[in-house]
Deep mutational scan, measured.
Amino acid sequence: SEFQINEQVLASWSDSRFYPAKVTAVNKDGTYTVKFYDGVVQTVKHIHVKA
């Protein structure tokens, strides 16, 4: 599913667990740039983002 900029989502971290994050960019290659609550910004594949 498509997510929008500033949408609150759950994004997987390197430990494969999902954490609350905010979408900061929707990228043309189908990835999302997300910002976790601790301030870390990461680009993740769409399969690693869920509502």
Rank of each mutant, 00 (worst) to 15 (best):
Ser1Tyr: 14
Ser1Arg: 15
Ser1Ile: 12
Ser1Asn: 11
Ser1Trp: 12
Ser1Cys: 14
Glu2Ser: 13
Glu2Trp: 11
Glu2Asn: 12
Glu2Ile: 13
Glu2Cys: 15
Glu2Arg: 15
Phe3Gln: 01
Phe3Ala: 03
Phe3His: 04
Phe3Asn: 02
Gln4Trp: 08
Gln4Ser: 12
Gln4Arg: 12
Gln4Asn: 09
Gln4Asp: 07
Ile5Met: 08
Ile5Gln: 04
Ile5His: 04
Ile5Thr: 04
Ile5Asn: 04
Asn6Pro: 04
Asn6His: 09
Asn6Gln: 06
Asn6Glu: 07
Asn6Gly: 15
Asn6Ile: 06
Asn6Ser: 05
Asn6Phe: 09
Asn6Tyr: 09
Glu7Asn: 06
Glu7Lys: 03
Glu7Ala: 08
Glu7Leu: 07
Glu7Phe: 08
Glu7Thr: 09
Glu7Arg: 02
Glu7Ser: 08
Glu7Met: 12
Gln8Asp: 14
Gln8Trp: 15
Gln8Val: 14
Gln8Cys: 15
Gln8Lys: 11
Gln8Pro: 10
Gln8Ala: 11
Gln8Phe: 14
Val9Ile: 08
Val9Pro: 02
Leu10Glu: 05
Leu10Asp: 03
Leu10Pro: 00
Leu10Tyr: 12
Leu10Lys: 00
Leu10Ala: 01
Ala11Tyr: 03
Ala11Gln: 02
Ala11Pro: 00
Ala11Ile: 14
Ala11Glu: 01
Ala11Lys: 02
Ala11Ser: 03
Ala11Met: 04
Ser12Met: 15
Ser12Pro: 09
Ser12Leu: 15
Ser12Lys: 15
Ser12Asp: 02
Ser12Phe: 14
Trp13Glu: 01
Trp13Gly: 10
Trp13Leu: 10
Trp13Met: 11
Trp13Val: 09
Trp13Ala: 10
Ser14Lys: 13
Ser14Phe: 10
Ser14Thr: 12
Ser14Gly: 15
Ser14Leu: 12
Ser14Cys: 13
Ser14Pro: 07
Asp15Lys: 04
Asp15Pro: 06
Asp15Arg: 01
Asp15Met: 04
Asp15Val: 02
Asp15Tyr: 06
Ser16Phe: 07
Ser16Pro: 05
Ser16His: 12
Ser16Ile: 07
Arg17Gly: 10
Arg17Thr: 10
Arg17Lys: 13
Arg17Ile: 12
Arg17Leu: 12
Arg17Pro: 11
Phe18Tyr: 12
Phe18Asp: 02
Phe18Pro: 01
Phe18His: 04
Phe18Glu: 02
Phe18Leu: 08
Phe18Cys: 11
Phe18Thr: 02
Tyr19Leu: 13
Tyr19Phe: 10
Tyr19Cys: 12
Tyr19Glu: 05
Tyr19Gly: 03
Tyr19Gln: 06
Tyr19Trp: 10
Pro20Gln: 07
Pro20Asp: 04
Pro20Met: 08
Ala21Tyr: 05
Ala21Arg: 00
Ala21Phe: 07
Ala21Lys: 01
Ala21Asp: 00
Ala21His: 01
Lys22Ala: 08
Lys22Trp: 13
Lys22Val: 15
Lys22Gly: 03
Lys22Glu: 10
Lys22Arg: 13
Val23Pro: 00
Val23Trp: 01
Val23Met: 01
Val23Thr: 02
Val23Lys: 00
Val23Gly: 01
Thr24Lys: 06
Thr24Met: 15
Thr24Cys: 14
Thr24Tyr: 06
Thr24Trp: 04
Thr24His: 04
Ala25Asn: 07
Ala25Val: 07
Ala25His: 09
Ala25Met: 08
Val26Ser: 03
Val26Phe: 07
Val26Glu: 01
Val26Tyr: 07
Val26Met: 07
Val26Cys: 08
Val26Lys: 08
Val26His: 05
Asn27Arg: 03
Asn27Glu: 03
Asn27Lys: 01
Asn27Cys: 06
Asn27Met: 05
Lys28Val: 10
Lys28Ala: 13
Lys28Leu: 11
Asp29Tyr: 02
Asp29Trp: 04
Asp29Arg: 01
Asp29Asn: 08
Asp29Ile: 02
Asp29Thr: 01
Asp29Val: 01
Asp29Lys: 01
Asp29Leu: 02
Gly30Arg: 04
Gly30Gln: 02
Gly30Tyr: 04
Gly30Ser: 01
Gly30Pro: 00
Thr31Gln: 01
Thr31Ser: 10
Thr31Leu: 02
Thr31Asn: 02
Thr31Cys: 05
Thr31Trp: 07
Thr31Lys: 00
Thr31Val: 02
Tyr32His: 00
Tyr32Gln: 00
Tyr32Ser: 00
Tyr32Trp: 05
Tyr32Asp: 00
Tyr32Glu: 00
Tyr32Gly: 00
Thr33Tyr: 04
Thr33Lys: 05
Thr33Glu: 10
Thr33Met: 06
Thr33Trp: 04
Thr33Ser: 06
Thr33Pro: 00
Thr33Asn: 07
Val34Ala: 00
Val34Cys: 03
Val34Asn: 00
Val34Lys: 00
Val34Ser: 00
Val34Gly: 00
Val34Trp: 03
Lys35Cys: 10
Lys35His: 08
Lys35Gly: 02
Lys35Ala: 09
Lys35Leu: 14
Phe36Ile: 02
Phe36Gln: 00
Phe36Arg: 09
Phe36Asn: 00
Phe36Lys: 00
Phe36Leu: 03
Phe36Glu: 00
Phe36Met: 05
Phe36Asp: 00
Phe36His: 00
Phe36Pro: 00
Tyr37Ser: 11
Tyr37Lys: 07
Tyr37Gly: 07
Tyr37His: 10
Tyr37Ala: 12
Asp38Ser: 13
Asp38Ala: 05
Asp38Leu: 08
Asp38Gln: 06
Asp38Gly: 09
Asp38Val: 07
Asp38Pro: 03
Asp38Arg: 07
Gly39Tyr: 04
Gly39Ala: 04
Gly39Lys: 04
Gly39Ser: 05
Gly39Val: 04
Gly39Thr: 03
Gly39Asn: 06
Gly39Glu: 03
Gly39Pro: 02
Gly39Cys: 08
Val40Gly: 07
Val40Lys: 13
Val40Met: 13
Val40Ser: 15
Val40Ile: 11
Val40Thr: 15
Val40Asn: 12
Val40Cys: 14
Val41Met: 08
Val41Arg: 02
Val41Pro: 04
Val41Lys: 05
Val41Ile: 13
Gln42Pro: 02
Gln42Ile: 15
Gln42Met: 14
Gln42Asn: 06
Gln42Val: 15
Gln42Leu: 13
Gln42Arg: 15
Gln42Cys: 15
Thr43Cys: 07
Thr43Phe: 08
Thr43Leu: 05
Thr43Glu: 06
Thr43Ile: 12
Thr43Tyr: 05
Thr43His: 07
Thr43Arg: 10
Val44Met: 06
Val44Lys: 03
Val44Pro: 02
Val44Trp: 07
Val44Ala: 02
Lys45Arg: 11
Lys45Cys: 12
Lys45Gln: 12
Lys45Met: 13
Lys45Ile: 10
Lys45Asp: 12
Lys45Phe: 10
Lys45Ala: 13
Lys45Asn: 11
Lys45Trp: 09
His46Asn: 14
His46Val: 11
His46Met: 13
His46Thr: 12
His46Asp: 12
His46Arg: 15
His46Gly: 15
Ile47Asn: 13
Ile47Val: 08
Ile47Glu: 14
Ile47Lys: 09
Ile47Gly: 12
Ile47Ala: 12
His48Cys: 15
His48Trp: 12
His48Gly: 06
His48Pro: 02
His48Ile: 09
His48Tyr: 14
Val49Leu: 14
Val49Asn: 05
Lys50Arg: 12
Lys50Val: 10
Lys50Cys: 11
Lys50Tyr: 11
Lys50Ala: 07
Lys50Ser: 08
Ala51Cys: 11
Ala51Val: 10
Ala51Tyr: 09
Ala51Pro: 13
